[in-house]
Amino acid sequence: MENQTIISAQGVNFWYGDYHALRDISLDMEAHTVTAFIGPSGCGKSTFLRLLNRMNDLVDGARLEGRILIEGEDIYARGVMVDELRKRVGMVFQKPNPFPKTIFENIAYGLRVNGVRDKAFIESRVEESLKGAALWGEVKDKLKKPAFELSGGQQQRLCIARALAVQPSILLMDEPASALDPISTSKIEELIYELKTEYTIVIVTHNMQQAARVSDRTAFFYLGELIEYDETKKIFLNPEKAQTQNYITGRFG
């Protein structure tokens, strides 16, 4: 079904201890779209992203109010299996963080922790995921090599492949290209464009051009509040709020 809402945040407030990090955020994201979160550092965009796969559960003193629905299900409801949720909502981090294992084992990890033992299945899924992350051609002859031997850009695509291997429906990306050179960055961006057909992608970025290039909709966060959320084209060409305008044109932030 077209234009189906897959992520829905409703009145989300979030605290780190006493610090009120997110104030009353409500927004819906549609399936098979790319949504970009932009805003200055510390505005809460990464925090919000990490709420979507409950990664903030690991932080001591974190507290949430409001509801976040993914595929219609309240992910903070009692009895939700967090590990099951995270299988549906994959994540790619700011810095490439491959495991200290071989390239193959990095991709296979997600399958193995899910109890997959079938060797042939794992092999085919590894290949599929590496192809999906546009890395297969570069690493197909060195799958048994340590992942740390890859370049930074390759490592990041490996991390994307690793996330794809468990076949999530949503892919969260926390500034995935910020630690990469321009060529690697453009490869990641192309990849995002291709992945959109199969996945719903939420990407946090500091790079305005990147947000403009890859996303369908853009959300602008400022000091823990969602200032504006609209089609990317509109945000960049004709924002409603002055703050958005100022940030995008580089007058502050």
Binding site: N53, M55, L58, D83, E84, R86, K87, G90, M91, F93, K95, N97, P98, F99, P100, K101, Y109, G110, R112, V113, N114, C159, R162, A163, V166
Partner: peptide, 27 residues
């Protein structure tokens, strides 16, 4: 053990125990 590696494992749907056994301890 870097937090990022731990998070990578959890983000793939590994349980805390799987993360300790398969990532944290080897690391």
């Amino acid at each position: 053990v870097p937090r990022s590696v731990r998070e990578a494992s959890l983000a793939l749907g590994a349980t805390q125990w799987q993360t300790i056994r398969r990532v944290v301890l080897p690391y």
